[in-house]
């Protein structure tokens, strides 16, 4: 748990003793067995652990994509339980940006169409989509590829498109699940730089899931997790796949 003394305002996201299990009866598996965590506005936080330790599960709960079986989740000073489906959708659409473990680009759609998907969902008109979509592609130096099909891009380019898509709605937080996992070291480093630049220059909060200790140390704070529980140190980390 991070206890940043300088922050007096409540955390923008806070999990208290949340649990999540999959399956039923004997097949029941506790993916999260009581984890607490606070995410403050403007910080970068790493969720670190081996493969299968429950990192993605935790991120999905924080991003309000799923509900915990037990424990409380606060969004600002509101309990997430009290939010309506509409409010949840609005939050995810307006305030959150997502970089998932895979790119999840629509292969036969253009780079531009992939990037403006969140704006489309928000009901933003075509003209504004155009300016905002192109602006964010410009920011990620992908403007010249706007009309290309997503399928024809390299891994690093795809991840830029994914980040552009996460950014296009001017989110407060970006959730990134293994953002460098699918990339070679050099490209991975470039993508990391982009994310930290967004945090530094635009004050966007980062929640980064990773099994890479080096990436974890670049973050302001870390939550180490093993078998669904928060632990103190990295010990056995680094061997994860």
């Amino acid at each position: 748990m991070n206890t940043t003394a300088t922050t007096l305002s409540p955390p923008m996201l806070a999990a208290h003793d949340i649990r999540k299990s999959y399956g039923k009866g004997t097949a029941r598996f506790d993916a999260l067995a009581g984890v607490s965590l606070s995410v403050y506005a403007g910080e970068s936080i790493a969720i670190v652990g081996k493969s299968g330790s429950g990192k993605s599960t935790l991120m999905h709960l924080l991003a309000l994509l799923d509900q915990p079986d037990d424990g409380t989740l606060m969004v600002g000073d509101t309990n997430a339980d009290e939010l309506s489906v509409r409010q949840l959708n609005r939050l995810r659409n307006q305030d959150f940006g997502f970089v998932f473990q895979q790119f999840f680009l629509t292969p036969n759609a253009t780079v531009f169409d992939n990037v403006v998907l969140p704006l489309k969902i928000a009901g933003v008109g075509a003209r504004e989509r155009k300016t905002r979509g192109m602006a964010v592609l410009e920011q990620l130096e992908m403007a010249d590829k706007a009309k290309n099909k997503a399928v024809n891009l390299s891994g690093g380019q795809k991840q830029r498109v994914v980040i552009a898509r996460a950014l296009v709605n001017n989110p407060k937080v970006i959730f990134a699940d293994e953002p460098t996992g699918n990339l070679d070291t050099i490209t991975g480093a470039l993508v990391e730089n982009i994310l930290f630049a967004l945090n530094r220059d635009h004050g966007i909060t980062l929640v980064i899931v990773t099994h890479d200790p080096e990436l974890a140390t670049r973050c302001d704070s870390q939550l180490f997790i093993r078998d669904g529980r928060a632990v103190r140190s990295l010990d056995t980390l680094g061997e994860a796949a």
Partner: peptide, 16 residues
């Protein structure tokens, strides 16, 4: 499936 999941994650309601 993927695409629908992504759109829902990005805040598209079930009704839509």
């Amino acid at each position: 499936t993927r695409e629908i999941g992504l759109m829902k994650a990005m805040g598209m309601g079930g009704g839509r």
